[in-house]
């Protein structure tokens, strides 16, 4: 007799083995690390800032994730549907929620692993100066949460179609909305029209606004709630979409 936890673990384990059985995982990690390193030192002005902080590193994350996270998440459900294995998965003695959670957690863990592998940047900044490591830990936490939010959206779009490319594009577009809603120009635009409340609302919907707080080293309860509720909502929608496909 399996517990819910056991089921989720079995699904997550399978999903992770799936990642590492193909070159996808390694390619992803290498590209992610190259991008992080490159942007931090070449375009982020890591040295020019002359600050012992990883601002130049974390500021790019919302943009990297925009493409990289959907690339990881696009296969979650569309691949199951394309292969027909979804029929195996959903006739096993597990609930759809356990399957959704297991798959999501596996991909999230994979993203977290990729993020952990950026530790040389942290070592560098500690070697060169004495940064506020509390801020850095906090930024890492925010980055992981943001990746989770993107990933949940990718899971949702992946459930919509059996075509991975379509799933990828859809989730990039959705995530782009969440990013762009937070750039100052959008808020200024609404403010100039006189809709200050609308400007505030869109800014509040954006991952940028909430990630900013983490980057400053502030763990605000509202920011946590924001990321967790994006994840919760997108995963719930994944479940609804899967169920509607089965009902035909």
């Amino acid at each position: 007799m399996n517990s819910a936890f056991g089921n989720i673990k079995a699904i997550a384990k399978r999903e992770l083995t799936g990642y590492f059985a193909s070159p996808v995982a390694y390619v992803f990690i290498v590209i992610f690390l190259l991008l992080c390193g490159g942007f931090t030192f070449l375009f982020g002005g890591f040295f020019e800032r002359d600050q012992a902080s990883l601002m130049a590193f974390f500021m790019w994350h919302p943009w990297f994730y925009l493409f990289l996270v959907p690339a990881v998440g696009m296969r979650l459900w569309s691949e199951e549907r394309r292969l027909g294995t979804i029929e195996l998965l959903l006739t096993m003695p597990i609930t759809a929620w356990q399957a959704i959670a297991g798959k999501f957690l596996a991909s999230w863990m994979f993203l977290a692993l990729a993020l952990l592998l950026t530790f040389p940047v942290w070592i560098t900044v500690n070697y060169l100066g004495s940064p506020d490591n509390g801020v850095i830990v906090c930024s890492y936490l925010g980055s992981v949460l943001m990746a989770g939010a993107y990933l949940a959206i990718a899971s949702m779009t992946s459930a919509m179609t059996r075509n991975q490319v379509v799933a990828f594009i859809l989730s990039v577009v959705l995530c782009l909305f969440l990013v762009l809603a937070g750039i100052p120009r959008v808020k200024e635009f609404f403010d100039s029209l006189g809709f200050v409340w609308l400007g505030n609302l869109t800014a509040a919907m954006s991952v940028m606004t909430h990630f900013d707080a983490f980057q400053r080293g502030v763990i605000d309860f509202r920011d946590l709630i924001y990321f967790l509720s994006v994840i919760g909502f997108a995963l719930f929608t994944t479940g609804v979409i899967l169920r509607s496909h089965r009902s035909g």
Partner: peptide, 29 residues
């Protein structure tokens, strides 16, 4: 209580046979 072989016999292509069967066993508790 059920064992099910769907039409066209789908299986996870990125796994080995033994990995796939272990997974099936694990999910069956």
């Amino acid at each position: 209580l059920i064992g099910y072989l769907p039409e066209n016999a789908p299986a996870y292509t990125d796994m080995t046979v033994s990995g796939f069967l272990s997974f099936a066993a694990e999910i069956r508790g």
